[in-house]
Simulated scan of single mutants.
Amino acid sequence: MNLLEYAINMELDGAQYYNDQAELNKDNELYNVFKEMAKDEMTHAKILKNKMNEIAFELKDDRNLENVKNIFFSAKDFKTDIKDIPGQIEGYRLILNKEKESIDLYENLLNSSNDEKEREIFKYLIKQEEEHYEIIEDIITLLNHSYEWVESAEFGVRKEEY
């Protein structure tokens, strides 16, 4: 298996994982986030397949994921809607590791390529995977915040009343 085939399989695995996460989160805002991330992974796989098969392709920066992220993080009742499934945060940390592996792979491919079109693809994919990494990191922060707030609510900083 060459590196492009490996990258395609990695993207397809990522899409399946994000679709699975979406199903686990049907009742909250994470559903849309994971569906968009799965869609992005499928697009990445298609771009790589087209490159491998020497078929024309377009690198679009449509910002769909950014729009979902904006909706997701501006939700007023976000903290109350999302339930932490046991081990969910650990699962998100595994996703972070996978996204980091993707970034590292595409950086290595970028550095070893002399083909300008190929380099353009790898730069695009690095940027996309970095966005995924950032979103998952934000989800972990939000889930951790609920634990930290509950643990420190009684002893947290309070405004002095006069």
Rank of each mutant, 00 (worst) to 15 (best):
Q16P: 00
K26C: 03
L109N: 02
I136R: 04
Y6Q: 03
E134F: 07
G14W: 03
N50I: 10
R158L: 13
Y17P: 00
E66W: 02
K117P: 02
D115S: 04
D77A: 05
V68Y: 03
Y147P: 08
E129F: 11
D40R: 09
F57N: 05
N53Y: 15
K83L: 13
L96G: 03
N114G: 04
E118Q: 02
P86E: 14
K69F: 12
S152G: 03
Q21D: 03
S102R: 01
I55M: 10
S113Y: 05
E23D: 14
K83G: 09
N97L: 08
K98E: 06
E161V: 12
P86I: 10
L109V: 10
M52P: 01
L96I: 09
R158G: 07
L110P: 01
R93P: 09
D62N: 14
K49F: 07
S102T: 07
L125G: 05
F72L: 02
K159A: 07
K69P: 00
T80M: 01
A15F: 01
M1V: 15
L110W: 14
N108A: 15
E134S: 15
E116C: 04
N64K: 03
N9G: 06
I95L: 14
V150Q: 12
R63C: 02
L143I: 05
K76W: 00
S152H: 13
L125S: 05
N19R: 04
N70F: 07
N2V: 00
L48F: 09
I121S: 08
K117F: 12
I85M: 11
E5H: 04
K26Y: 06
G87C: 09
H44W: 06
S152C: 13
H44Y: 07
V33T: 12
M1S: 15
E161M: 13
L4Q: 08
Y147F: 13
K127W: 08
F155Q: 10
Y133T: 10
L109W: 05
E41S: 04
K79C: 03
E151Q: 13
G14L: 11
A75Y: 00
D77Y: 11
G91D: 07
G91Q: 03
E161C: 14
I135L: 14
N28S: 09
E129L: 12
E131K: 13
H44D: 05
K98A: 11
S113C: 11
L65R: 08
V33F: 08
E5V: 01
